[in-house]
């Protein structure tokens, strides 16, 4: 019997999260994090934001982006701490905090998107 290791699944989530965050986040940070706050571009009206986020397709995409990106963070951060700080003895705790955090964040994302009328 082989023991099933979660590593391939976690790597898939890491990889998928890496791709979607790379594709979508630079433009979103540029718009909502830099250009709109600096006044280079006018902020979308509240009604417009409600319409965009209330669209089921956008909501599903936003959920996918948030959840996969969080699992991307969890996997990469765990491995970086493991390589960088040599903290093998904290492996289980670290896995709980990173993947657990990503799971909690995903549920939060689903709840917040669900609340949009």
């Amino acid at each position: 019997m082989h023991t099933r290791h979660p590593e391939p699944l976690l790597w898939m989530l890491f990889s998928a999260g890496g791709v979607v965050s790379a594709m979508l986040m630079p433009i979103l940070v540029l718009l909502f994090g830099v250009a709109i706050p600096l006044g280079w571009l006018a902020a979308p009206s509240h009604a417009r934001m409600l319409a965009v986020l209330g669209n089921p397709l956008t909501a599903v995409l936003m959920f996918g982006l948030c959840a996969l990106s969080l699992f991307h963070w969890a996997h990469r951060f765990r491995h970086t701490l493991y390589d960088g700080l040599q903290i093998k003895h904290l492996n289980e705790l670290l896995a709980l905090l990173t993947y657990g955090g990503a799971a909690v964040g995903s549920v939060m994302a689903a709840y917040l998107l669900w609340r949009i009328p």
């Binding site: 999260g17 965050s21 986040m25 979103l28 940070v29 994090g33 982006l65 948030c66 990106s69 969080l70 991307h72 963070w73 990469r76 951060f77 491995h79 970086t80 390589d83 960088g84 964040g105 994302a109």
Partner: peptide, 11 residues
């Protein structure tokens, strides 16, 4: 590898 912290922040 640390870019993942910024990914998490932006989520």
């Amino acid at each position: 590898e640390m870019t993942c912290l910024f990914v998490a922040w932006f989520v």
